[in-house]
Design a protein around this nucleic acid. Structure first.
Length: 278
DNA sequence: CCCGTGCCCTGGCGGC
DNA sequence: TGCCGCCAGGGCACGG
């Protein structure tokens, strides 16, 4: 569930469930997922309170009394909340556990089948704006400056799809929403970034805001159907216009079928009539 | 610097 | 049916 809308839905879910909980015990089940510290460093958060759940682009931030954790779901990371150990043992396969945080009344379980998920821990004295991970992440569509976005895009010689997936240029967009945004703008994903006009780059930001907002309202996109025990089964997959629609008719050209290409190594869906390289 | 490729992992699916 | 290669919503470390 990894693009901005899905991470935002997870953030809201965790915010509702775990804010003000006091951490009693932490288990790091997949040691490799903790990148910038040791397991002993993580034990320092025991007895701290969960103050808030924040987010920047696809990064989840769990703010504690004295530290904060930055967690990234990558491809398939998921969170579960249980009210008791018994409930946890009954309802989930523990093979994919990454991190287990027990509080005074709940268990927060972070799992990842592919083991790509990451965790980093920082002291609160390290401000978010100075954080070594987050400072490499550009602004989201909601806050990015149109001028800065245009300037970055016009310096790139790569395909525009590769550029809007680049978290250092604009953040929060992944493979699904990149396809949706480019289709909405009638832009072919292999168009060279630097050839876009300011009008087009402004329009990309505008589409991104609308599409991401709409997806958040629908609890994000769930393409693979995972267990529903996580309160974040989305429905935006039912509203996708091109992504994952190979062989289906274009919504604007009923006689034209959506085709699939590979751009920057990623599966990419387009309508060949709507999206042409100038 | 910038850009393209491979890789980290595991599971599911289509094709033979 | 059984096996095998390919693909997957992300990002980083390498090369050239």
């Amino acid at each position: 569930m990894p693009e901005l809308p899905e991470v935002e839905v997870v953030r809201k879910y965790l915010e509702k469930e775990v804010t003000n909980e006091i951490i009693s015990k932490v288990f790091l089940h997949n040691k490799k997922s903790l990148r910038n510290a040791t397991e002993e460093d993580l034990w320092k958060i025991e007895s701290e309170t969960i103050v808030s759940m924040e987010r920047k682009a696809k990064h989840l931030i769990m703010r504690l009394s004295n530290h904060y954790l930055i967690m990234h779901l990558r491809m398939e990371g998921k969170f579960y909340i249980f009210n008791s150990l018994k409930e946890m043992h009954l309802s989930t396969n523990r093979f994919y556990d990454v991190l287990e945080i027990r509080t005074n009344s709940k268990i927060i379980l972070f799992q990842d089948v592919r083991r790509f998920a990451t965790i980093d821990i920082f002291k609160n004295s390290c401000l978010l704006k100075d954080n070594p991970i987050l400072s490499k992440v550009a602004d989201e569509p909601f806050t990015i400056s149109e001028k800065i976005f245009y300037e970055k895009i016009s310096k790139k010689k790569t395909a525009i799809k590769v550029a809007i997936l680049d978290q250092g240029i604009i953040s929060g967009i992944g493979n699904i929403y990149a396809d949706e945004i480019l289709f909405d703008n009638n832009i072919h994903p292999e168009t060279i970034s630097s050839s876009l006009t300011r009008k087009q780059t402004n329009s990309i930001i505008n589409s991104a805001k609308i599409i991401l907002t709409e997806s958040i309202k629908k609890n994000g996109t769930t393409i693979k159907n995972y267990t529903s025990s996580l309160g974040v089964e989305g429905s935006y997959q039912n509203f996708l216009t091109v992504h994952q629609r190979k062989g289906m008719p274009c919504i604007r050209h009923p006689n034209q079928l959506i085709i699939k290409l590979k751009v920057g190594g990623r599966g990419t869906y387009i309508c060949p009539l709507c999206q042409k390289i100038d």
